[in-house]
Amino acid sequence: MIPTALAFIAGYADAVTFVGAGGIFCAHVTGNFVVLAADLARGAKADEWLKLATFPIFVLAVFLSSHLHRRVGRSSRLLLLLQAVAFAVAAAVPLALKGPAAHQVVVVFAVVAMGMQNAMHRVAPTLGPMTTVMTGNVTQWFVEKVIPGAPENVGKHRSLGFIILAFSLGCLGGAFGVQHWGFAAFLAPMGLSLLVRSRL
């Protein structure tokens, strides 16, 4: 249940920032390099600094999350709480700021939230496979369909399928959510982060 919920959160958040903030990924941050290059090739403005800034912001979130894990017991619970706070701030920012500045601050907090989730998977392997980028999971799922693993891995294969499905549904939810409610749509992953935290 927990990896599935985390996958939904990642897909949802990525879709919210991509649709609502001009094509920026908050979970799959390296994808922003491709988007930036495409924008520049099409003659878009060269001041798309935020697409490049997502990478150092993401790295800093991972770095700080790793330090918290080293210093604090049961750090996944703390990181999920901080992730929920980051989503809450992202949802509230448009109430205080308007225009491009609001989008920029929202993206920063969304990237921080996803940096924390990426770090959680590395420092707490019990959370299961990565839930923020699906390429590796999709590859593994289909390879195991063609070349089945050991019988005891059937449950893991099924779980991986649910993770991929949850990420896809999260993408749909985030895209429609931001279209209807703006960045207040981040309240959904905030609540889900708190729910996951309560199950740890």
Rank of each mutant, 00 (worst) to 15 (best):
F142G: 02
L50Q: 10
C26W: 12
A102N: 01
G174H: 00
H103I: 13
R197G: 07
V178W: 05
A96D: 10
L97Y: 00
W141R: 09
R42C: 15
A91W: 02
A96T: 14
V123T: 12
T139M: 13
V178R: 02
L169P: 01
V123L: 04
V123D: 02
V34G: 12
V146T: 07
V59A: 11
V16T: 09
S75V: 01
I147P: 14
F162C: 15
G174T: 02
V107S: 08
G170P: 02
C171H: 05
N118Q: 00
L82D: 05
F142S: 05
N153F: 14
L50W: 08
R122F: 09
A41H: 15
N137R: 02
G182P: 09
G99A: 03
L68H: 02
L192M: 08
V146F: 04
M130F: 13
I147K: 14
G155P: 01
L172R: 04
M120I: 04
V16H: 09
T30M: 08
V19P: 06
V143Q: 10
R42I: 13
P3C: 03
V35K: 08
V146H: 04
A44V: 10
A38W: 15
W141E: 00
L169K: 00
G115L: 02
R71I: 10
L169Q: 03
R77S: 11
P3W: 08
S198K: 00
G23L: 06
I24D: 10
A21F: 11
S65A: 10
E152R: 12
L82A: 03
A15Q: 08
A91R: 01
Q104M: 13
